[in-house]
Amino acid sequence: MGVIAMDKKQITLYYSSENSIGKQLNAYVESSGKEHLTIDISKTNVTGTQWAELADGLGKTISELVNTDHPDFKDEYGDKTVNLDDDGWLKILDKKPSLLKNAIVIKGKDFIELTSASDFKQYMDPDSAGIEKPYK
Rank of each mutant, 00 (worst) to 15 (best):
N45D: 11
A52D: 08
D85T: 14
D72Q: 14
K91T: 12
E64D: 06
I106L: 11
T81C: 00
T115N: 15
L114D: 03
E64Q: 04
Q122M: 09
G88P: 03
Q122F: 02
K96Y: 04
G108V: 08
T44Y: 12
G130W: 12
T49D: 13
G88S: 09
T61R: 13
G48C: 02
S63A: 02
A55P: 01
Y77A: 01
N67I: 06
N67G: 02
A103S: 15
D79R: 06
E76G: 01
E76Q: 08
E53S: 04
S42P: 09
V105C: 04
D110V: 05
G57I: 05
I62P: 04
G59V: 04
D119F: 03
K95I: 05
K95S: 08
H70T: 00
I106E: 12
S116N: 09
E132V: 10
T115S: 14
A117Q: 06
I62Y: 06
T47E: 01
T49N: 14
D94V: 07
G78F: 02
L100F: 02
E53M: 14
L93D: 10
D119V: 00
A55I: 00
K74M: 06
S116F: 08
K101P: 06
G78A: 00
L100H: 01
V105W: 02
V46Q: 02
D119L: 00
V46Y: 04
Q122E: 05
K91G: 15
T115I: 15
E76W: 05
P126M: 06
K43H: 13
A129Q: 11
G59M: 01
N102E: 15
D86Y: 00
G59N: 04
K74A: 08
I62M: 02
T61L: 08
A103R: 11
N83P: 07
T44H: 10
Q122K: 14
S42V: 06
D87R: 02
F120R: 01
T115Y: 12
M124I: 11
D72T: 07
G48L: 11
E113K: 09
T81Y: 03
E132N: 10
L114I: 03
